[in-house]
Design a protein around this nucleic acid. Structure first.
Lengths: 194, 194, 194, 194
DNA sequence: ACGGCCGGGACTTCCCGTTGGT
DNA sequence: ACCAACGGGAAGTCCCGGCCGT
């Protein structure tokens, strides 16, 4: 192997960058390789030396997006704890910029229809994020359960806020989501209370 | 009423039935008209006498699915209140049968990318469902806010449970979502508390 | 067959027009379908409903070009006899505009490498042109032999005039070719004289 | 001299040999460097130490082919004069072996589309050949004009004989070309007579 | 000199939404 | 209502010219 595997491959990185944004913005099925490659400053034919198929690009794009998000969550948690992470996630800025936002909110229903390999990649990275958040809830009985439900609430809220027509309603949804998420991480909440 | 052409054409009804299931199962973009028409026992050319475009079919399919769901929610609420509605929604049966399940969970991220007319149709029907649920929470200060957040949690949870790889994890997600939703509708919860 | 075969198909005609010019200008192998379709105001995907393959397009483009040329030769012969046809063929205007000129001069060496079907199409149309010219040489012993050699001389001359570098030399070649062609059709020439 | 790097590298000579045959056989655009190098018993990467680009290889291959042909013409003229040169050129052997035959007949229409440097190389060598033949026609008024037209006739005839489908027709073309070329070099022919 | 890598681009197959002739 | 065809466009395979690490 002439070019060692870890070799800097700026084209590959550029393709992944463009693709992960394009997928989040337009959906996976609706994003063509030609458009992605063109946006990356390349042509169709240069794709396959980098990725074996579109499915592989999808997997790696999802991984890339979720890894980036992992770091953003870490920063928000460090700077202001779960409260800040929640309000950042459910901000109007995030709602209005899906291309650079949460891949789960943008792609979750489409991920459910992907082949198992893709869903496994998603699962692994999602679980990392979940555990990352759970680690900040040591005072709660079932931190992972709570973290799962908080993620579900955040993702569902952001999707709803993006889907509905009407700025005011969208803002109400974001506010309701923020309240709910905060309540879920309150110390006296016991995930097994019911 | 809603159908401007007001036809009770059985072909039209059949097409809508098939389409609303196909869209929920495979996504909107990934569902071709040819397949839908074929499943409806018709051919390609019979589509356009009934609908002006795929976009119109999408709008009406979403409306159809959400109306059906409205009635299902009504039944569950009547039979067992919000508790039953939640556990029915987050059941494994619902997770494993998206074609006949909640259109929001199946299509929400794709709805966000549809033209305004489609999003308006979605919004109207979603709001009906939300108010329907809010009406069962008279003891709560901000019933609509809570209903919004419960919907967000349910939708996000179901999507997550469908997207992840691994039955066990999927079950954990459903359980966590159920707990969270139940907690959110507890009487002492005040959506505007924070 | 819904659309009868002789149906006006403006797209097909447009593609053939563009392709026959492009092939003559750039060569067959060097002309891509995408460029041809784009010049015809269409996209890649619209090609295959019209032609089964590039090879079929090549065949029909050659036929189209040679048919058009047949009519042009007929006009020149009618207006000024073989003399005019020769001087028109070996004009600087023809030399400088291969896209609308003689397909033989532009493509002959490439035709020799085409599959038999293509060469047959070429042969048929070339023979029509040859006989058309032979018919104007009734006073010559072997009109078809002379016509063949005149075509060879004209084609070779035009190709040489296009290939060499230098306007002056190119003009000398055209002049020499005209003289030779005229001499070949002189009445006292007997193709079997040697 | 002509090779600025002046190398007598045997690999370089082998590459030129193979390339000049391959170009004549398959055309310039249709001949890939990988195939040429492989046929020369080398690999892809060994090309660029010898030639700066494919265009340079094309130029030198054309030069090589035309120089070899110059010598062959010299031999034929010495052995049997123009008559023998013509009948050798328009033989079935030559028609059926383009790889080792006349580069003009094989590549002329493609040469016309090459960059000026390439066309200049072609022009220089073609003119050498033309003058070589003109020198054997001292009894003719305009020997260079006649030589030009004879070359045009020979080249056009050989291309036609290769392009048409049908052995018999091809043979007729060769015969017609031979007759025409012989007539053109008859002593009483005056290139400027018309 | 080797041989794989790189970006470019061609050809082809397939399917989409839509139209229109029957 | 049928169904073929249209234009659009995507995915994928292949090969090209050229480059570079070894």
């Amino acid at each position: 192997m002439r070019y060692e595997k870890g070799r800097k491959d700026s084209s590959r990185i550029k393709i992944l960058e463009v693709a992960s944004e394009r997928f989040r913005n337009d959906g996976i099925a609706a994003s063509g390789l030609a458009t992605i490659m063109s946006d990356a400053g390349l042509t169709n034919g240069a794709f396959y030396p980098h990725f074996a198929s579109k499915a592989e690009l999808v997997r790696e794009s999802i991984a890339t997006a979720l890894e980036t998000q992992f770091e953003q969550i870490a920063e928000a948690l460090a700077a202001g704890g779960p409260e800040l992470a929640i309000s950042t996630y459910l901000s109007e800025a995030h709602r209005d910029n899906p291309a650079k936002g949460c891949a789960s909110a943008a792609l979750l229903s489409e991920v459910a229809r992907q082949p198992p390999e893709t869903r496994q990649v998603y699962t692994d990275h999602f679980m990392s994020q979940m555990r990352q958040v759970a680690a900040t809830l040591p005072h709660i009985k079932d931190p992972e359960g709570v973290a799962l439900s908080v993620f579900a609430t955040l993702i569902g809220t952001l999707q709803l806020a993006r889907a509905v027509e009407g700025k005011e309603l969208s803002a109400r949804i974001l506010a309701a989501g923020k309240d709910a998420a905060r309540r879920l991480i309150q110390p006296n909440y016991d995930g097994a209370a019911s």
